[in-house]
């Protein structure tokens, strides 16, 4: 199917979050559809990471609603978010550096044998297959994550999110530390995820990337959504001026 069926997967309504006196989110609304890549852009401190951490359950918002497939939540915890099918690649990657790659990929979802012992063999085999599929080159599957390069570490975090897929995949700056080849592979992967019918949210500072990937762009400024527009209806320059506050909503 060239154009996967678009269905409302997740809605955010009037989401607010403050850190002390700093209001990171001041009432954000957002609609996320399956089969669509939504880019969230904004300047540093605009509230992008706070927003996606609330969706991932890593953060408890002060008020507002998160509606997932018709079910309304005041807040989510990480387990709930994962069970609802929300997988996240965090900006800080959320990896355990002192453990090996396979252990990190399966963190929290280790396969068991005899219902008690971790099936390390399966973890290693599945991880190798996964990294081949994603064209992420790693020195050895047994290497400690802390010994990897920045790009390889991002690869591990992306691989983990892909592996346990679900319905909504959130990428917070997924290619920031990657090399050219790894970036291309990751981006084409994200693109194909949208085509496969996943809902995808990507946060990026790279507008070229955003325009080549996303169908819609959500521009956030100072904790508020300036506008959510279709990529076809807007130019990168207009987006930049909306990010910086130089221009208001285009007609």
């Amino acid at each position: 199917m060239a154009e996967a069926e678009k269905k409302l997967f997740l809605q955010v309504r009037n989401l607010k979050k403050s850190y002390g006196h700093v209001e990171a989110l001041r009432g954000v609304d957002l609609d996320v559809y399956t089969g669509e890549i939504l880019a969230v852009v904004g300047d540093n401190g605009a509230g992008k990471s706070t927003l996606i951490k609330s969706l991932a359950g890593a953060l408890v918002p002060d008020s507002g609603k998160i509606i997932v497939e018709g079910q309304t939540y005041e807040q989510l915890n990480p387990r709930q978010a994962l069970d609802l099918g929300i997988s996240t690649v965090y900006q800080d990657l959320s990896l355990v550096n002192c453990r090996d790659i396979a252990t990190n990929v399966f963190l929290g979802r280790e396969p068991l044998k005899y219902r008690l012992f971790i099936d390390k063999k399966k973890m290693v085999q599945d991880s190798i297959a996964l990294f081949n599929q994603l064209k992420i080159h790693i020195p050895s599957i047994h290497a400690l994550v802390g010994r990897l390069s920045g790009g390889q570490r991002q690869g591990v975090a992306v691989a983990r999110a892909i592996k346990f897929g679900g319905k909504l995949l959130i990428f917070d700056e997924p290619t920031a530390a990657m090399g050219i080849q790894e970036t291309a592979a990751t981006l084409s992967l994200i693109k194909s995820l949208g085509k496969q019918g996943y809902a995808v949210i990507i946060i990026s500072h790279n507008l070229h990337q955003v325009f080549s990937l996303a169908q819609r762009i959500c521009i956030i400024r100072q904790g508020l959504v300036v506008d959510t527009v279709s990529t076809a209806d807007i130019t990168p320059n207009q987006v930049v001026s909306m990010i910086t506050g130089a221009a208001q909503v285009p007609s």
């Binding site: 991932a56 359950g57 890593a58 915890n77 990480p78 387990r79 978010a81 994962l82 069970d83 996240t88 965090y90 959320s94 990896l95 355990v96 550096n97 002192c98 453990r99 252990t103 963190l107 929290g108 979802r109 280790e110 068991l112 008690l116 012992f117 971790i118 390390k120």
Partner: peptide, 29 residues
């Protein structure tokens, strides 16, 4: 030895020492 090297309990003990926020975000209590 079995607990530390072959069970979730041991894996999470080591992972908690490495990055407990990552463990929490992975949905582990």
């Amino acid at each position: 030895w079995v607990l530390l090297n072959m069970t979730k309990w041991g894996y999470y003990a080591l992972a908690l020492g490495g990055n407990d926020e990552a463990v929490r975000r992975a949905g582990v209590s």
